[in-house]
Design a protein around this nucleic acid. Sequence first.
RNA 1: GCCCCGGUAGUAUAGCCAGGACAAGUAUUCGGGCCUUUCGAGCCCGAGACCCGGGUUCAAAUCCCGGCCGGGGCACCA
Length: 514
Amino acid sequence: MGLEEQRRLLGELAPELLEERRVEEEKKLPPLPGAEKGKVVTRLPPEPSGYMHVGHAMSGLLNYLYARMYEGRLWLRFEDTDPRKVKPEYYESFRKGYRWLGIEWDHEKNNSDDMELFYEYAERLIGMGKAYVCSCSVERVRELRRIGEECEHRGQDVETNLRLWEGMLSGRFREGEATLRLVGDMKHKNTTMRDPALFRIVEHPHPLTGTRYRVWPLYDFAVSIEDHLCGVTHVLRTSEFALRDELQNYIRSLLGMRNPIYVEYSRFEFRGTPVSKRKLRAIIESGLARSWDDPRFPTIEGLRRRGILPEAIREFTITQTGFTYAERIYDWSLLYAVNRKLLDPKARRLFFTPEPVKLRVRGFEGGEVEAPYHPENKELGSRRIRVGELYYVPGPDARAMRPGDLVRLKYLMNVRVLSVGEVVEAEFQGREPLRDVKIIQWVPVEDAVEVEVLVPGPLYLDEDEINPESLKVVKGFGESAVASVDVDEIVQFERFGFCRRDRGDKAVFIKAHD
RNA sequence: GCCCCGGUAGUAUAGCCAGGACAAGUAUUCGGGCCUUUCGAGCCCGAGACCCGGGUUCAAAUCCCGGCCGGGGCACCA
């Protein structure tokens, strides 16, 4: 009985078993607290002020996977309320990154779309006596917050606050001269509750709204309102926001809005590869890297160039991640293992000889040999290689050779080493595979293609110690079929590792891992 | 300084809330073997952990207290 036949029969006898398989995949994520099928709404809240990195990816994946798991909906909402930080190119870069990961969202908006609405809610709070215009200096606000004392502006009546707020909007105050603050509790143990600023003046054009608005909401206010407007039921985010749950819930409670359920987890990074913009910029400024899509970087583009598959990031997120509050530093091998598992069955095998050394074979008539592109996956086909007397073999292998050694050139022949030197001289010993003989890859000298492989390593050796050798360049020759590798295709150079072709004009590859 | 939150093998996690079958599961890593025309994959075997000290209990990874270590917050950033 064929597979299709079996499946059809099973569908008739026990359709639930077929269903099971699909659910299984998602099942590995723990259940979401308080989640009901069809009613879950989550969101991707990127700030378009920098490059998307693994952190955004995993957070985004979690929000997406849960929305799907409960047949709910997902928002993509740009948190773009700091005109000075937001840059137009980043909006699209996030969309692109999420798409690459296979994340599909149902709705999209920008916080900056809702400025008028934010103002309305602000006025309601002022009217309720729950917000006031404060013209203290930043330093004074900070100091009073630290010692838990109120400033004189807090006692202003609604009338005054409304007038001053109007003044903020109309430009009577300059940047830094006034903020709208929440009436919180200046003695609250949670310092975010000590009369946080809700709005401030920014005299800087916004990429989307230009100079139309000068009073911008701060994070907590914008998020509180937007999560309500989007009907968000579950907020999955990193733990540095944990202290703000209380504040955001309080703001919403004043406005009669429902609160979401929070699921928070710690931030993470991969060993030696900080996500911190500051540290990454230091690398660029030091000249070690040129751009943010450098394969050593944890940016999405960097990961992609490095040959990490989006499915691998997804699998990794589901299986290796938990909602732990403990700090974590992932070992790259954890991701590599997942990536390798996905790549292994479909990556073509090719010959590449790093640090090549010439090998001359005497007594071999030459001709052509056919070699499969994959040991098991026959669908990948094979290539024919013209062979003669001269070959390149990997430098490390050549250096280990001693006269008398028997070596097999994979798929081709066995040779006995006669002498070693600048050129290794060897003698043909038959074509049939032998047991217990070292098998190496090789490239015929006449058809060799120059290949360069970039090997990314950790950017930092320690907290602040930059690794001066984070990128190694391995040069060598590849067999002629290397020319047929498409840009972005990931192949396995036998006994070397999985590599993605990075450039079309030259055979430049980036090594993903062994 | 004040306030939160964490600490399970090298790494990442399960278990903790509802104490007992946990002499702690899984993945990765490392070591060994099998298989293989790759040092890849696959299969098998093995190594390796409950931060420390008290307490509660018949019984503690799990509950309580203290200590140590780590992270985060105390922005007119998000």
